[in-house]
Design a protein around this nucleic acid. Structure first.
Length: 345
DNA sequence: TCCATTTGACCTTT
DNA sequence: AAAGGTCAAATGGA
């Protein structure tokens, strides 16, 4: 009960702190000619996202009042920490269907290139294995079900569903469930894609190529930095296209904390290659259009903590946990009364 | 032989 | 009861 409130508050505080920190960075960038427009755009976008998240949290907690009861919320309604649910999930592997309700869920839309030309990177760095396909009532196309390849070896229970859009067959709705316990599944370059397989995810706002490029670089950086962490079970097909931004797989990118700061607002792609009709998704920024569950997940700090720890090297958290800024508690009091009337009006 | 995909059956949820 | 989701045997490719 009270824990829930406190969790929400902390999460909101975190978001706001992130916003503050990003604003500071932006100010720094504005004072110099050295930073690129892209970087500034990124910072602005990050700040907006952060504040939007905070506002959403406020709205959500406000609409919920003191009455728990959001269905499908990964945040355990009865007050039990999300991490407990996850632990249970891991233990009760045979009761997988019971996980449906407890795991965070969010959807993404993926647009597939009709030309089959690689316009960006594909995949999310995770390895998926198809375990089912089902015709869905009212849907033209069947829905495909995928789970993490490392379900058994690493007890990773992340799953996803891929549903081709009826209206636009080039669009795929991808629903993710659960978070990866495994570290990022691969770092290898994907095999040459056939035209059919050179499908990719395009952002709904893909006219912002600069931002996409920055994201790609960031993801590339992540990949580079996680190489060697998990070599034993690297699944080969997921990586960035070397043509995406002129970097080969072996390029060593500077991946400094500064770079992370500059790009940290982007969560890594949740896309994956694994479906016959769409083998390689490229990532996009901020494409997530439905944070069902996952958004609520932010409200529980234990869940947050787990996500952060789990995703140290390979994140697929629905939230922006990359922001590991050295926050200065003196400049912004975490205990600041966020429910102060008029504060956000 | 190993691993991924396919697909019908079964289970869970609504 | 119907629809959605998962399991697991069969199958095929490397």
């Amino acid at each position: 009960m009270e824990n829930g409130c406190s969790c929400e508050r902390k999460t909101i505080t975190k978001e706001l702190l992130q916003g503050v920190e990003l604003a500071k960075q932006l100010r720094g960038h504005l004072g110099t000619n050295a930073s690129s427009v892209e970087t500034r755009d990124l910072l602005v976008q990050s700040i907006l996202t952060s504040y939007e998240n905070a506002l959403r949290l406020l709205k959500w907690s406000g609409s919920m009042g003191s009455t728990p009861g959001i269905p499908e919320s990964p945040l355990s309604i009865n007050g039990s920490p999300q991490s407990e649910d996850f632990d249970k999930d891991n233990q009760e592997s045979k009761e997988s269907s019971k996980k449906r309700k407890t795991q965070p869920r969010w959807t993404d839309q993926v647009k597939v290139s009709s030309e089959g030309v690689l316009e960006g990177p594909h995949d999310d760095g995770y390895s998926w294995r198809k375990y089912g396909q089902k015709d869905i009532l009212g849907a033209k196309y069947p829905r495909s079900y995928y789970r993490c390849t490392f379900r058994n070896s690493k007890n990773c229970w992340a799953t996803k569903q891929v549903q081709r859009s009826d209206e636009d067959p080039t669009i795929f709705d991808v629903t993710y469930r659960g978070t990866h316990n495994c570290s990022r599944g691969s770092q290898a370059v994907p095999p040459p894609a056939s035209p059919e397989k050179q499908e990719q995810k395009l952002n709904n706002h893909n006219n912002n190529n600069n931002q996409q490029e920055m994201l790609l670089k960031f993801r590339k950086s992540l990949r580079v930095n996680t190489e060697g962490l998990d070599n034993k079970e690297m699944a080969p097909p997921f990586s960035f296209s070397s043509t995406s931004f002129g970097c080969s797989k072996n390029d060593n990118l500077n991946f400094s904390p500064t770079a992370l700061d500059n790009l940290g607002s982007f969560s890594p792609s949740f896309m994956s290659p694994a479906t016959p009709e769409l083998n390689y998704f490229s990532s996009s920024h901020c494409q997530r259009n439905n944070f069902e569950g996952a958004f609520h997940a932010q409200c529980c700090e234990s869940y947050l903590t787990e996500l952060i720890s789990v995703n140290t090297s390979a994140t697929n958290s629905p939230i922006m946990e990359h922001w590991d800024f050295p926050l200065d508690p003196v400049e912004f009091d975490p205990n600041f009364p966020l429910d102060t009337p008029g504060l956000f009006s």
